[in-house]
Nucleic acid binder design. Structure first.
Lengths: 148, 148
DNA sequence: CCTCACGTTGACGTAAACGTAAACTTTGCC
DNA sequence: GGCAAAGTTTACGTTTACGTCAACGTGAGG
């Protein structure tokens, strides 16, 4: 069984990207859908691949990097040297992602701090209706002095 | 006490970025170091701000978005409408970061799967030295069929 | 046969985030 | 005071990831 196939238009709607983007990914060698004449026919496998590509993009990988990773997946027949190279690449990517995860957690924590301050100021405003704002300066930056 | 200050060169080395990048951030209004004549003098506060900027960049924020966030931090004197707007913006950013964190975790999990497969193939190779590779095709894509 | 929606291939345009080179001025220090 | 190192502005160049026409093919249906 050959499973479902998709037209380019279907995929754009399903994935929330433009046809131009799909053709671009093909130009860059990230996908290679079949053709019926000149028309592109995407398989379920192509679609799954696109899901990976889009996720890669969202986490900040360049298209070329994503291509590298996909190529590594695809070349499962490599010699031992190839495999070791692939292993190294995968380990590097994972390490990069872990660093990035920490950055994200830190950023979120920072923003949550800012959010708390804003909310406290808002509730304060609601408590007593003073309009002569008592300049509370949100500092941010990990609670740095408001001015040096 | 005015705390330490930094020359542009010092910051490039400390933060691992170029002077061009620092000037660019200034052009875009993300930082505004003092001047002694024409020479830029960065304060500790500027440096902390840069740390935030770089982290923002690493997690995929555009410079303009980072500027928005920093501006929100800076304008702690806003009226109640401003504050509510800021609150909304912060909440949005946090939500975006949480989505991104999930993407990262998914990506890492996917890569770890690939890594395991590679390692198993490598140990297999070490076990019995067969060179007529028995085509094990790493599929990836969440264990999809190797070919439709 | 004609229209229309959907598809195709060029090929130039663009926005973001700097790189890079040119042409100077300023500063540190021997 | 002289010279290298470090600083400045101005401005065009580059890379990435598509956007945006233009010009054309193709199958379904009225």
């Amino acid at each position: 069984m050959t499973g479902r196939t998709f037209s380019i238009r279907e995929l754009t709607k399903a994935l929330g990207i433009t046809a131009r983007t799909l053709r671009h990914y093909e130009d860059e060698g990230l996908i290679a859908p079949e053709r019926r004449g000149a028309t592109r026919i995407y398989s379920g496998r192509d679609r799954a691949r696109l899901t990976l590509i889009l996720r890669g993009r969202r986490v900040g990988f360049a298209l070329a990097e994503i291509k590298d990773i996909l190529d590594l997946y695809d070349s499962g027949d490599g010699g031992i040297t190839q495999l070791q190279h692939a292993r190294k690449k995968f380990a590097e990517r994972i390490a990069a992602l872990e660093r990035q995860k920490k950055d994200i957690e830190d950023s979120a924590a920072e923003l949550r701090l800012g959010l708390e301050m804003i909310e406290s100021k808002l509730s304060e405003r609601h408590a007593h209706e003073r309009s002569a704002t008592n300049r509370v300066q949100i500092t941010g930056y990990g609670l740095m002095p408001a001015e040096d």
